[in-house]
Amino acid sequence: MAEPKQVPESYYSDLKSLQAIDFTLVELTLYLDTHPDDLEALKQFNSAAKKSAELRETFEAKYGPLRQFGHSLSAYPWQWIDTPWPWQV
């Protein structure tokens, strides 16, 4: 029975940095909801959004799609059904 391939160690550090950036985006979104005219926060939000997109792109290039329904690209063959699933990470 073939042993499913383990993800490399760098998977977890990349995922963590992506999660950290996404969390700051969540916080900044909530902050900007109540402070629409705060320019520094808005600049920080946009730069964090760009950074998050970059991080996600490199992550998906290395480890496969993160989001479904067209939000992520997939290599051949269809990677969505590969392990690890989010709850297995």
């Binding site: 963590k16 940095s17 999660q19 950290a20 950036i21 969390f23 700051t24």
Partner: peptide, 8 residues
């Protein structure tokens, strides 16, 4: 502000 990792 915290750094992203600390914030997480």
């Amino acid at each position: 502000q915290f750094s992203p990792f600390e914030a997480l």
